[in-house]
Amino acid sequence: MIAVNKQLISQQAVDEWYVNWNALREQIHAAHEARNGQAEPFMHQGIEHFLQFLMIASEVEGYDTQASYELLPLNGGERLAFIRANPAQYASYRQLDELYKETKKRCARLRLQI
């Protein structure tokens, strides 16, 4: 398992990461509501944003699909694989949003552990 560096998931760092996601999430949601097929580029940005945080917090150079990350919630790797394979689907957007929420909660739990 690839451990997270707890100093890199401070409340401030996670809050900034999540604020950025909220702004992007609104764009993705609006694109899906408009049904104009423009959500995919925003989804790619959201996926990249999520992976960047995961890699920084885990202190790794790149995302390994076969690795287990302490920071990822239950079935996070499988869910991320689905999202990456189907970025234009609304279901992927919902999964990515849930993955962000659950990862934010997981960060809080990990910070509390000794």
Rank of each mutant, 00 (worst) to 15 (best):
R111L: 03
R109S: 13
F53P: 00
A57W: 00
V19S: 10
L51V: 12
D64H: 13
K101P: 01
Q113D: 09
Q27D: 12
P87V: 04
L54Q: 02
F82L: 09
R25N: 15
T65K: 03
S92W: 02
A67H: 02
E33D: 12
Y100K: 06
T103S: 13
E59H: 03
H49R: 12
R111G: 01
L74E: 15
A88V: 02
L74I: 12
Q45K: 14
A30M: 07
Q38I: 00
V60P: 01
H49Q: 15
Y93T: 06
S10C: 08
E48W: 05
A91Y: 10
N5Y: 04
E40H: 07
M55H: 02
I83V: 15
I9P: 02
Q45E: 15
Q113S: 11
A108L: 07
C107V: 09
Y18H: 12
K105I: 04
N86G: 06
I114C: 01
L54H: 02
H49A: 14
G37C: 08
G37D: 09
L54S: 03
R25W: 09
I2P: 00
M43F: 13
K101T: 07
N75M: 09
P73D: 14
P73W: 13
I56L: 10
E61W: 03
F50I: 07
A23E: 12
L24H: 05
L8C: 04
R94D: 09
C107H: 10
N36E: 07
Q27R: 12
R111K: 10
A81L: 11
T103M: 13
Q12R: 11
G77S: 09
N5G: 05
I56D: 07
E70H: 05
K105N: 13
E40F: 08
F42S: 12
N20C: 09
S68V: 05
N86D: 11
Y93L: 09
Y69T: 01
N86L: 07
P73V: 13
L74S: 15
F53Y: 06
P41N: 10
E48Y: 06
A88L: 05
L72F: 05
M43S: 12
G62S: 11
T103Q: 08
Y18C: 06
K104R: 15
I28K: 03
F50K: 08
N5C: 09
M55E: 03
E78F: 10
V14S: 04
R109G: 07
E40G: 08
Q12D: 14
H44Q: 13
L99G: 02
E59P: 00
F82H: 08
E61V: 05
P41R: 07
I2M: 11
Y93C: 08
